[in-house]
Computed example of a mutant assay.
Amino acid sequence: MSEEFHIELELEKTIGTIFYSQFFQTPAYPTQNFAGQIVVVTGSNVGLGLEAARHFYRLNCAKLILAVRTVSKGEKAKEDIVQSIKHRSDADAIEVWPLDLNSTTSTLEFAHRVKKGLPRLDVLVENAGVGAQRWTLVEGFEQSIQVNVVNTLLLGMLLLPTLTATKDKYEHASPHLVIVSSDGLRFTRFKQINEPDIYQALNTEKGFNAFEWYCISKLLEVLFIRELVKRLGGHKTTSMVPVVINLVNPGMSHSSFAREASLPARIIDSVMRWMFARSTEVGSRTLVLGANAGPTSHGHFMSDGENQKVAEWVEQDVGERAQIKVFEQTMKVLEVRSPGIGRAVGL
């Protein structure tokens, strides 16, 4: 296989950046008022999503949608949030809606419900994700790719026109699409980018490595969003961006992310988090800060509430070529799942 896209890892720099963030940086406690706004948080019954949802409710959002795979767990999360926030008594401001990103049908149905059932959409935080530990194909795609990339981007693209309409309709609206990313994207050489069909390569069991595929899934998100923002013209007039689209990195935080991993993997994960992780609440702040970040965050990867360079190669010619290839091949997949999705967002 030829190396048309040669990616050099910057391990020493990456580890230094992560170490500094974990031990010497603390994301600011969110104080921005979300009064009047409707917020959707996916994967919000546990972990970072739950704590981010709690912040949005504390910060007076008009309506909070907990988008969860299991409604009964979402109802428990709602009860927990309501009981913990003493200055509000409007439990009906929180609704639990089913969303399973393993399923394209569920993703399409959720998007349709948002479009038809909500008068506006101010914030979409796409937090739901998986780190599949075993080889599993879902609708023909490896599970981490299916959930973290294809249907996450499908949902974001489907609801981007709704976010834009909110900006057009309400004078002071500042809609945000926030995708939860990870430092893990810096730990892959992404060899599959050199294959003619990236997704075919990723959906073949040969060479599968759970951590590698998770890292690739997070890198694919970044490359796609960078190219999407570029094609929508967002880098030209950031002050006029109708919807701020950014990616946020919560850092290593205590969460239930590894709950479906094998016992040895869960043990390793628990030890690593015990040694290095920030609290779930602190990690969740990055999601809320992303939902309130200014237009200068548009198209950017954020850590600790601030824009951060992804990697040197991403900023170079190889990165620009890689994001074009990723975008075009991903759009082909999304168009199959929702014909006309590109045209609907203005591509």
Rank of each mutant, 00 (worst) to 15 (best):
Ser182Lys: 07
Ala210Trp: 15
Arg186Lys: 08
His235Leu: 01
Val222Trp: 02
Ser255Asp: 03
Pro264Arg: 06
Leu232Phe: 02
Ser262Glu: 06
Asn203Gln: 11
Phe257Ala: 03
Arg231Ala: 06
Gln200Gly: 11
Phe187Pro: 07
Gln200Ile: 01
Leu219Cys: 05
Glu212Arg: 15
Glu221Ile: 02
Ser253Arg: 01
Ile179Asn: 03
Lys236Trp: 05
Thr188Gln: 05
Asp197Gly: 15
Ala258Trp: 12
Val222Phe: 09
Gly251Asn: 03
Leu177Gln: 02
Lys191Val: 13
Lys230His: 14
Asp183Glu: 14
Pro175Asp: 07
Phe187Ser: 11
Ser253Gly: 06
Glu195Asp: 06
Phe208Glu: 12
Thr204Val: 00
Phe190Ile: 13
Cys215Phe: 08
His254Cys: 13
Ser256Ile: 09
Leu177Val: 02
Gly233Met: 06
Cys215Gly: 09
Ile245Thr: 09
Ile245Val: 14
Ala210Gln: 14
Asn249Thr: 06
Ala258Gly: 05
Phe211Lys: 12
Glu260His: 15
Pro196Lys: 12
Ser253Val: 08
Ala261Asp: 07
Asn194Met: 02
Ser255Gln: 06
Asp197Cys: 15
Glu205Arg: 15
Thr204Ile: 00
Leu223Phe: 01
Lys191His: 10
Ser256Leu: 10
Glu260Thr: 13
Ile216Asp: 07
Pro264Val: 08
Met252Trp: 14
Phe208Pro: 08
Asn194Ser: 04
Leu219Tyr: 02
Pro175Gln: 07
Ser262Trp: 05
Leu263Pro: 10
His235Val: 02
Val244Asn: 12
Leu202Arg: 03
Ile198Gly: 08
Glu212Gly: 09
Tyr199Phe: 15
Cys215Ser: 12
Asp183Arg: 05
Thr238Ala: 13
Thr237Gln: 15
Ser217Ala: 03
Lys191Asp: 15
Ile193Ser: 01
Leu185Ile: 07
Asp197Tyr: 07
Val243Pro: 02
Ser253Leu: 10
Glu260Phe: 11
Thr237Ser: 14
Lys230Gln: 13
Gln192His: 13
Gln200Tyr: 12
Ile225Thr: 05
Val248Gly: 05
Arg186Trp: 00
Thr237Phe: 12
Glu227Lys: 10
Ile198Gln: 05
Leu223Gln: 06
Phe208Ile: 04
Ser255Val: 10
Leu177Gly: 02
Phe208Gln: 11
Glu227His: 07
Arg231Ser: 05
Ala201Trp: 03
Phe224Gly: 12
Ile225Met: 10
Pro196Asp: 14
Arg259Ile: 08
Val178Ser: 03
Leu223Trp: 01
Thr238Ile: 13
Glu195Gly: 01
Lys236Asn: 13
Val229Met: 06
Pro264Thr: 02
Phe211His: 12
Gln192Ile: 09
Pro264Trp: 11
Leu247Met: 15
Val222His: 03
His235Lys: 14
Lys230Val: 03
Glu227Tyr: 00
Gly234Cys: 06
Val229Lys: 01
Asn249Met: 09
Glu205Trp: 13
Gly251Leu: 05
Ser255Ile: 07
Glu260Leu: 00
Leu202Val: 03
Glu212Thr: 14
Cys215Trp: 08
Val244Ser: 04
Arg189Pro: 02
His176Asn: 06
Ser181Asn: 03
Ile225Val: 15
Arg186Thr: 09
His235Gly: 10
Pro175Val: 05
Asn249Ser: 09
